[in-house]
Amino acid sequence: MLNKSKSCKNIGIDSKFLIKGNIRGELYLKHNDFFVEEIHYAKNIKNINDIKSNPYIILELTKKGISTFEAIDLLLNKLKILRNKISYCGLKDTNGLTKQWISIENNSRVQHLITNFNDKKNRHKAIGLFEN
């Protein structure tokens, strides 16, 4: 059994101030059991449009059971772009199903790859699929 108050004390937390839920159960049995997605500001959402000549492509990245670093590396490899051409808001949990927004500097080659990805026939060639 994990000694929570001892683990907390080690990092300067007084467990008296935290929740005592006293619930017993099993978490993280499957990656789908832990889901997290980003919430974005309305003013930022308004910036997204269909104008293909805009300098940034906005994507939603869904990953399962891998870290954000690893997922970004996979994308970089597939799209053959440099790390500094991609932006994201932070790291999401490895153990879980997570959704986050990313932006990539727009160019016709990357745009083509991504459009192909959204075409169901080609999507497995472009990026990959979830394992069931």
Partner: peptide, 14 residues
């Protein structure tokens, strides 16, 4: 099979 999927949301000026 890698466990990621991307979805195009659109384009942005900024």
């Amino acid at each position: 099979i890698k466990k990621i999927v991307i979805k195009l949301l659109g384009y942005s000026k900024i």
